[in-house]
């Protein structure tokens, strides 16, 4: 009889200890979150303005690098030769068959057209807009270089073609196309 009561006592006590431990553990986990989340991009970073760019002054064969969200963005007015080369490259020859265009579905094919499409579906094959960061380890590739009339990353020797697609070297993906749209025939807003 007494042992039974004691047993009930003990199990009630164990339950109390376990419940308290669990409450403490949950609270500690919740309390840690602000200390982790404070390192995520803050409201001012997230709200950073989109960047507007006027394409009109860019001459054929000329490229510029502008900054968007702290990253380099390559904007290039391609020559007819570059466009021609990019268009006739069969998809089968590409290392990465995905467009990597943030304005398109994630499985869009890496055709030249898909590389120059904006968020509204507008295509202007003269202007190629891409994030200038090598998809290998984050260096900035050099323009008008490499074996494919495009970009070449000097860090580890990745070659991109005139549509910014990876053709040779260690980089796994094509250069990313940032979200952008034409607000007029020659003005784009990135972001």
């Amino acid at each position: 009889m007494t042992t039974k009561v004691e047993n009930a006592d003990v199990s009630r006590r164990d339950f109390l200890y376990i419940a308290t431990g669990a409450v403490g553990a949950v609270g500690t986990a919740l309390a840690i979150w602000p200390f982790i989340d404070q390192m995520n991009p803050d409201a001012s970073v997230l709200a950073l303005a989109s960047t507007e760019f006027d394409l009109a002054p860019l001459e054929e064969g000329q490229g510029v690098t502008i900054k968007w969200r702290g990253k380099p963005v390559f904007i290039r007015h391609r020559t007819p030769k570059e466009i021609e080369e990019a268009k006739k490259t069969p998809l089968a020859e590409l290392k990465d068959p995905i467009a990597r265009n943030l304005n398109l579905p994630p499985d869009a094919e890496a055709t030249d057209e898909n590389r120059v499409k904006d968020a509204n579906g507008k295509v202007n094959e003269k202007y190629l807009v891409q994030i200038g960061i090598c998809t290998h380890l984050g260096c900035v590739p050099l323009g008008e270089q490499g074996d494919y009339d495009g970009w070449f990353c000097p860090c580890h020797g990745s070659h991109y073609d005139s549509a910014g697609r990876i053709r040779k070297g260690p980089a796994p993906r094509n250069l990313d196309i940032p979200p952008y749209k034409y607000t007029s025939d020659t003005v784009i807003v990135i972001g």
Binding site: P34, D37, Q38, D42, A43
Partner: peptide, 13 residues
């Protein structure tokens, strides 16, 4: 003020 207004949980910290 940046901490108080923009940083995630900055006001709390």
């Amino acid at each position: 003020e940046h901490i108080m207004r923009d940083v995630n949980w900055g006001w709390l910290l």
